[in-house]
Amino acid sequence: MQLITSISLNYKQCVNLFIRFGITSATLVLLVVFLSKISPIDSGLSRVGDQFSDISYQAKNVSLKHGFGFSLLTNNLVLQDIKLAMPATFELATAAMLFAILIGVPLGILAAVNKDKLLDHILRMLCLLGNSVSIFWLSLMAMLLFYAKLQLFPAPGRVDIAFLDEIAQPRFLLISSILDGNWPLFKDALAHIMLPALVLGYYSLANISRMTRLFVLQELQQEYVITCKLKGMPFNQILRRHILPNTAIKLITVILLSYASLLEGSTFVENIFMWPGIGLYLTQSIMVNDLNAILACTIVIALIFITANFICDALYKFLDPRVANV
């Protein structure tokens, strides 16, 4: 059964959305440039003693043309560093999201169907904890418990030392190692990604399962469920063919927003698990006060976040046939 039933592109709404997207991105860039101008940090001075002293002027220049300037950490162009780091973050975020969806959605459905019973209460407590725990503390505790004490997972990092040169190029390790048939690499990458993905996914799990539960409960109160019962439909069929598609429409936007907010959480998770993604890059640049890298990462992450928000707005208008035709 089709979910995306009629994509009626309302011209005026489209233009409106694009304008808002443009204004937001422009404001973001303005903000970042403003910060770079008023900052008391002088990136040029930090490179005192560097033989490439004329590049110190470029170091203050936060423009895409110059590749966002040079990083203090790696002596590469910041843009290159970001290009290397993005696939790693993307991999981690996707793994976390898969975990959150595959566990969160069924849990939410079960909790809604068994409302006010034990399972429901357990889930609500899980969600409450998910909203209250600080993600870096959870990562530290997880590492302490599962790596140090129980020794279930390998050391922090994306791969073992033996495979370090595999990640010198930007690539999606899990996918490319399957495609190459390089099984030791795949197993190693998988083992390393599990714990950070679980921790990062926990936040999204709490959010997604709570929203799923809410949406399913809302659907269960609708008239058409009564009509189905009057038709003599078994409950499983009602759930599968009526409630879930209606819920899925609403869930897509939640999932997308959750994916974007994973970027914020991954800042801490990558720091603690030494995962070489953009979050680690950002936090390490903060430690050494590398303004170029900090602002460049901010622009990149914030742009992805804004884009996800606007895709959600657009999807929300187009997916529901009732709203789309208005």
Binding site: E223, Y224, H242
Partner: peptide, 15 residues
């Protein structure tokens, strides 16, 4: 067969 009152609400809106 029991037929309900408000047909527009009683039918699943996305089908």
């Amino acid at each position: 067969a029991l037929i309900l009152q408000d047909a527009k609400i009683a039918l699943n809106p996305i089908m």
